Deep mutational scan, measured.
Amino acid sequence: MAAGGDHGSPDSYRSPLASRYASPEMCFVFSDRYKFRTWRQLWLWLAEAEQTLGLPITDEQIQEMKSNLENIDFKMAAEEEKRLRHDVMAHVHTFGHCCPKAAGIIHLGATSCYVGDNTDLIILRNALDLLLPKLARVISRLADFAKERASLPTLGFTHFQPAQLTTVGKRCCLWIQDLCMDLQNLKRVRDDLRFRGVKGTTGTQASFLQLFEGDDHKVEQLDKMVTEKAGFKRAFIITGQTYTRKVDIEVLSVLASLGASVHKICTDIRLLANLKEMEEPFEKQQIGSSAMPYKRNPMRSERCCSLARHLMTLVMDPLQTASVQWFERTLDDSANRRICLAEAFLTADTILNTLQNISEGLVVYPKVIERRIRQELPFMATENIIMAMVKAGGSRQDCHEKIRVLSQQAASVVKQEGGDNDLIERIQVDAYFSPIHSQLDHLLDPSSFTGRASQQVQRFLEEEVYPLLKPYESVMKVKAELCL
């Protein structure tokens, strides 16, 4: 049975990233139509530049190519590739079939990587351009969430054990800070992308030097003109047959890092959902379990974690691919890159769409948070109580021993009897502590235990987050809708 299948058929496997999760716009960027249309555009740009620099290419040939950029006979191309065992030459023939007058000058002087690699770089750039505003929107939604809850005390956790208090907004800023680093890295790697350009079979530009009869300047002009037509500021000066596969490492490393950030955020949300302090959106008709109707599973956060793990592992592909590119190139890269580049971007696209949807509907339960604080705060307040007693004339050592005994009794009630923490009640009825009984409410005010959390939130948002989001103001209103 021949390899390949009808990918629109229910009898043929289709990647869930495309069929179930990723956005239509990201799927289109990695589609065959987008790819092969870009090949034709690159052939047109090459012909236009070659004509401008004096090669015998007519206006009629150029116009014929322009008129057929979208006229792609995919069936013919597939048949040609089956016959020739070469995808680029299959599309040269297919393009030439609908451009008979231009057929002889299509791909003039070029090698397969002229269309293959340059198209990949265009796709990487455009895919990054799709991700950047999506990530900015996630940051914006979380920034709104953090600002609104900047002063809401909550129990902090280290080692997932109760620690000092923080605020809900401050905790959210930990998430935002990681995503801001990801946004900066995505922008950097996007701006650092260079075009492969017009380089020939081993990167020496020998074929173009021959076409222009040894004119170095025209060869350099050709490279520059096509690079500018493709919208790049610069091209690699040095290439082998391909652009260095280190570029793929750079791009997928940034995406993998984004995956790590999203995994951490969504894990926190899942843990908070278990504590009943916070939940992701839950639709009115949504079913959490087929057997347990009360369940409210954090399905979206779980999906993000599941896909983020996949995204983090994909960076190993370009690392290994770059390491086995012998001399000017081997074909070890080809099949692998067809999979890992598309999957990385479709996965990143999915987790950003999902995280935006989550961040637009996060639900906080202040009463649950308050109750958990009441359970733990008495123990945390013991040092403040000791200091207040010393100020009232008591002995630190005597007070410490009193607190120690009462704390152990209260802990026994919590752990052995399943009761509430009654340390404060014990202190309130103990005559030894009568000098500070009137101060206990103040000493137990949760806001006095959150330090500068709310001020940190305000400063972080104003100095770091809002300036970073400013270039994306025009796209901030787009909502994230999930079908599944």
Score class of each variant (00 low, 15 high):
T111Q: 01
S261C: 05
L55Y: 07
F449G: 03
R303E: 02
E228R: 12
S261L: 02
G116P: 00
M181R: 07
V254F: 06
K233G: 12
S31Q: 09
A2E: 09
A102D: 04
S289N: 00
L355C: 12
C305Y: 01
N185K: 10
R452Q: 09
K246H: 07
H263S: 10
S323H: 04
T330W: 01
M65L: 11
M65T: 07
P56S: 11
A230F: 04
F212Q: 06
Q286V: 01
L319G: 02
R234G: 12
L42R: 02
L84Y: 10
L211V: 15
F74M: 15
I427W: 05
D73K: 08
M312A: 06
P24H: 09
C399S: 14
N185S: 12
Y294L: 03
L142R: 02
S290K: 03
G288V: 03
R37V: 09
S407E: 03
Q286L: 01
R371F: 02
P467F: 07
P100H: 08
V88F: 04
D445L: 13
Q51R: 10
M299N: 09
Y365W: 15
P153L: 01
R371S: 04
F28V: 07
P378I: 07
D120I: 07
Y365D: 02
E148Y: 07
L165E: 00
K101W: 08
I386T: 12
D215M: 13
R296Q: 12
P435A: 10
I105V: 13
I139H: 02
E302K: 05
L258S: 08
V324H: 09
F449C: 03
F36K: 12
W175R: 01
I373D: 01
T38S: 08
E417Y: 11
E81S: 02
Q455A: 12
L440Q: 08
S9C: 15
A78P: 10
V390K: 02
A2R: 15
T450H: 01
F232S: 04
Q63T: 12
L131M: 13
E228Q: 10
A256M: 10
I385Y: 08
A431R: 13
T450C: 12
D445M: 14
S395G: 12
A453W: 03
H159K: 02
G200R: 01
G394A: 10
R309V: 12
Y294T: 03
V465D: 02
D333S: 00
Q164A: 11
Q205Y: 00
P24Q: 11
R329T: 01
P16E: 07
P318D: 02
D317H: 04
C304P: 00
Q408L: 10
I369P: 04
P100S: 12
P100M: 09
Q241W: 02
R20D: 00
R190W: 09
L272C: 08
